[in-house]
């Protein structure tokens, strides 16, 4: 197997006065995808992952309120790009655990109207599967959005520090796809995050992993604390979720070092789950096996 490719794409002016500039965001996604797949047009890249008949879930992260959640302008921009390869807008679902969290993050819900769908698992008639999916140490009921409504998914996660796991990334983002994430916080969420990702409902469906680093919370996450948040205006993109998380982790460590904070390992919350995921063969967590491309639009 060759190296895993990760693109860190920066967009100057993507975030001005806490407002998203969708033109820059769109450029970042397009260029990032093109770099990821070595092609000139982002549509060629998307066509390698998705087909027009797909039902695609974009799993976002809205637990931390408006200041540190996936901005609607970002997820909608990504969804719109998917329509450019022929995916029907009604077959794209932007989703998270609850409608309340989505609203608090600034989303306008759309369950039954036309266009791109936006709703939470707690929507009446959706909910979690009644039966457990059991895999290694995981025993969870999955959101029916992930299990039934979509056949492919994108993890569009917020890049941030996490008080227990060390890092919230694209793999941990799927804690929001199960009914009992609170049961997997022991031992820095290791091996739970990796084992959850390995379940067929996630591993087989997740095609693209994106870390949203518009604002990066590098300490005291997962909630927002202005004094330890930095505007970075970047995305980390990969088809390898482990590699994306690994690069995100290194980026957090870099920001921590700049601010004189100790490495996560010293705070006993190194994200070992990333190493575990690599051992399980889910991806790469070693700079020697990752091709990192940095680019600014």
């Amino acid at each position: 197997m060759g190296k895993s490719k990760v693109v860190m794409i920066k967009g100057k002016g993507a975030l001005i006065n806490n407002r998203i500039n969708t033109k820059v965001i769109s450029l970042m996604f397009k260029k990032g995808l093109s770099l990821l797949f070595d092609c000139n047009d982002f549509r060629d890249a998307l066509n390698q992952l998705f087909s027009p008949s797909d039902r695609i879930g974009i799993k976002i992260n809205t637990i931390a309120g408006r200041k540190l959640s996936t901005n609607p302008e970002i997820s909608l921009t990504l969804a719109n790009l998917l329509t450019r390869i022929g995916v029907r807008s009604g077959n794209i679902i932007i989703w998270d655990r609850t409608n309340d969290e989505l609203r608090r993050a600034g989303y306008r819900l759309n369950f039954s109207g036309g266009g791109i769908k936006v709703f939470g698992t707690d929507t009446r008639r959706i909910n979690y599967e009644f039966d457990l999916t059991i895999h290694k140490n995981i025993g969870s009921r999955f959101s029916r959005i992930q299990s039934r409504l979509v056949n492919k998914s994108i993890s569009l996660a917020i890049l941030k520090d996490h008080g227990i796991a060390g890092l919230t990334g694209v793999m941990k983002n799927y804690f929001g796809a199960i009914h009992n994430p609170n049961k997997y916080h022991d031992s820095n969420c290791n091996p739970y995050i990796a084992e959850l990702y390995e379940t067929y409902l996630i591993k087989n469906k997740n095609k693209l992993s994106i870390l949203d680093g518009m604002i990066v919370q590098y300490h005291r996450g997962p909630s927002y604390h202005a004094q330890w948040a930095k505007k970075c205006e970047l995305f980390i993109m990969s088809t390898d979720p482990v590699a994306a998380d690994y690069i995100g982790w290194q980026f957090i460590e870099k920001l921590r070092k700049e601010r004189g904070l100790p490495p996560l390992e010293e705070e006993k919350r190194m994200p070992y789950y990333i190493i575990t995921a690599e051992k399980m063969g889910l991806g790469k967590a070693n700079l020697n096996e990752i091709q990192l491309i940095e680019y600014e639009v």
């Binding site: 637990i63 931390a64 008080g163 009992n180 609170n182 996450g221 909630s223």
Partner: peptide, 13 residues
């Protein structure tokens, strides 16, 4: 001894 940030739930849920 769950230590939790804003909007986080304890292990008990």
């Amino acid at each position: 001894y769950c230590q939790l940030g804003d909007r986080e739930r304890g292990y008990c849920g």
